[in-house]
Every structure is written in structure tokens, then in C-alpha cells.
């Protein structure tokens, strides 16, 4: 424990040196840390070329794009590209759904990933550890199209395996695809199922990254395994958890389009409960190839995400400066 405590003490002291350099301005800062800035150059160049320059195209959301005039020459049309989304009368509903589903997903994903990682790390038999972890990774490879085929095979009304079994015990068949309540459980379940192996790898890496001397010291002090988890492992996972949650919030307006589209599709009976921003946009723009309208929803999502992430980051900053994203 001592090493980490020491580390965080230093962290508090660090900004002092930053304050000193502020007086000397940009040039001396660049000169003083020239090696560090030089190490940042490759990534900066990459993102300028592959992200910032094409980002200028975002103005398409406010333009009536045509090929003759190109992206910059096409006439402006204000917010006309946004209209179809807000006029649908469902803008609020889908925004709310998107946020709610993502919050549920993020929570379940975090809890189960941590649980899985902690328990995997407790397993001493290497072969069991390796094999079980590999197995948890398998769902990641099964695309949502295939998942949806399986789910249909398993749950459909006429010849789904579940209903066949129920019929065996003379229980009335379930009509899962016309009933929203099942999906509030099914969707998070499938989400966790698909991503738990992926998420647990990160948390496991964090656990493994904890200095083993800390555990040894605790063992000498007579701590039980349970105590070691609650007093050492979990607190030390907190920074990883916070960063992963913050990054998860960065995707809160998007959400697993493929999952909703493949599993639910255009199911009118489930729609109010399962419609998210991406599915609404998809349904409305199917077959029209309108770049402006497609990027308009993107802009809406980006702006909302920016607000959410800045707020969350600000909150984290107030609580602990070092764990904030920026």
C-alpha cells in the first residue's frame, strides 16, 4: 500500500511546478518539455490528418449538399436537415430511451466485468483461468445478426425451444416478441453476455497491474482473501472504473445500433419501448442516401454527448482532479 500512497502524495505536489512555468509562457514550456512534446507529435499529426481535416465536413449538416458545388460551395439551408428528426414527434422519446438503455448497459457491464475479473483473479489453477477467460471472450465474435437468429430460434412463438419445453409441461406459450417487459431484461442480458469477456480483460489487467508486494504485506498482516478484495483490489480498481465509465458516457448517445436493429427490427409493438436515436434515423433515411440529413443526427448526438461528458468530467474533477479525463 505504501508505494501507492506515496505516489498519490507526489501527485498533489506536482501542480506547483506547473504554476512556476506558467509565467514563462508557451515558448519556454515547449522548450523545457521538448522531448515530451516531440513524443506527442506522431499522434498529433495522425489526428490532424485523419480526424480534424475531414471534420470540416461537419458543415454538411447545415447545407443542401450537391456534387457540382462540393461540400464547401453547396448552399446553406440552416436547420432543414434536422427537421425530419424533430418533426417525427419522437425526438424526446428516443433520446430518453437511448440514455436510459445506455445507463443500464453501462452499469450492468461495469458490475459484471468487475465481478468476473475479481473472481478470475482469485482462481489459482492456471488452466481453468485461461480456458474460462477464453470462453468468456467467444460471444464478442458472434455478430448481432447471428445472435438474433439464435434468439429467434430459441424464443419464437411457434417452434422456439422455450415454448416447446413449456408445451411439454402444458404451460401456455410465451409471446416474447409482442411483449415489451421481456425485453427490458433480455436486452441488458444479451449486452452483458456479449461484452463481459471484453470488459473483464481490462479490469483483470488492472488487478494484475497492482503491485504484488501490497498483497504480500497484507497477507503478513493476516488479512483474509475477502478483506484483500474489499480493502485492496476494489479501491485500486476505482481509477480504472472511473475512466472506463467516463469513456462509456462518451458513447451514451449512440448505443448498440446493430443490437436493436437486428433483434427488434421494425417491430411496431415493441417500438415505443425500444426505439433509440440511431434506429429512428435509420428508419427515416432508409434508401435516401442524404448525407446532410444523416450527419444532422450525428451532430445532435455529438452536441448532447459533449454536454454530458463535460458535466461528468467536471463532477469527477471536483471530487478528484487526477481521475478526470482532462
Amino acid at each position: 500500500m505504501s508505494v501507492n500512497a506515496e505516489a498519490s502524495n507526489r501527485v498533489v505536489a506536482a501542480p506547483a511546478s506547473g504554476a512556476k512555468s506558467r509565467k514563462k509562457g508557451l515558448f519556454s514550456e515547449l522548450k523545457r518539455n521538448r522531448v515530451l512534446y516531440a513524443m506527442f507529435i506522431p499522434i498529433a499529426v495522425y489526428f490532424i490528418i485523419f480526424a480534424y481535416i475531414p471534420m470540416a465536413g461537419i458543415i454538411m449538416a447545415f447545407k443542401d449538399f450537391n456534387y457540382r458545388d462540393g461540400i464547401f460551395g453547396s448552399p446553406w439551408n440552416g436547420f432543414a436537415n434536422f427537421e425530419y428528426f424533430f418533426k417525427s414527434g419522437k425526438a424526446f422519446l428516443v433520446t430518453r430511451n437511448t440514455i436510459i438503455y445506455n445507463v443500464i448497459f453501462l452499469t450492468c457491464y461495469t458490475v459484471f466485468s468487475i465481478l468476473a475479473a475479481v473472481f478470475i483473479s482469485e482462481i489459482t489453477r492456471k488452466w481453468f483461468k485461461k480456458i474460462s477467460q477464453t470462453m468468456m471472450f467467444l460471444p464478442y465474435f458472434i455478430s448481432w445478426v447471428t445472435v438474433s437468429a439464435f434468439v429467434y430460434n430459441f424464443l419464437n412463438y411457434e417452434y422456439g425451444i422455450v415454448n416447446k419445453m413449456l408445451a411439454h409441461f402444458s404451460i401456455a406459450p410465451l409471446d416474447i416478441y409482442s411483449n415489451t417487459s421481456y425485453w427490458y431484461f433480455l436486452l441488458p442480458f444479451l449486452y452483458v453476455w456479449k461484452w463481459v469477456g471484453y470488459g473483464s480483460v481490462l479490469y483483470l489487467a488492472a488487478i494484475v497491474g497492482i503491485d504484488q508486494e501490497v498483497y504480500e504485506a497484507a497477507t503478513i498482516d493476516g488479512a483474509t482473501r475477502f478483506q484483500k478484495i474489499t480493502r485492496i483490489t476494489l479501491p485500486l480498481l476505482k481509477p480504472t472504473m472511473i475512466i472506463l465509465i467516463l469513456l462509456g458516457l462518451g458513447r451514451i448517445m449512440r448505443g448498440e445500433f446493430d443490437m436493436f436493429y437486428q433483434l427488434i427490427g421494425n417491430n411496431g409493438t415493441l417500438m415505443d419501448a425500444t426505439d433509440i436515436i440511431d434506429t429512428l434515423a435509420f428508419r427515416s433515411l432508409v434508401g435516401s442516401a442524404d448525407f446532410g440529413m444523416a450527419s444532422a443526427v450525428g451532430v445532435y448526438q455529438s452536441v448532447l454527448t459533449l454536454i454530458i461528458i463535460l458535466t461528468a468530467n467536471w463532477l469527477v474533477r471536483r471530487y478528484d482532479k487526477d481521475q478526470a479525463l482532462f
Partner: peptide
């Protein structure tokens, strides 16, 4: 690195690209 005065700015420079993109056509 804490001694880097602009590290938060640099982080935001990177993070911003995950929020906004020009979309398919310009890319």
C-alpha cells in the same frame, strides 16, 4: 506527465475526435 502544462488541452484535443466527426463523405 504532470510537468506538462498543456496535458489537459492535449487530452481534449484527442478526446474531441471521438465526439465529432465530419462523417462519411468528407472522410
Amino acid at each position: 506527465r504532470k510537468e506538462l502544462k498543456y496535458r489537459n488541452g492535449l487530452t481534449f484535443f484527442l478526446f474531441f475526435t471521438t465526439l465529432f466527426s465530419g462523417g462519411l463523405a468528407p472522410f
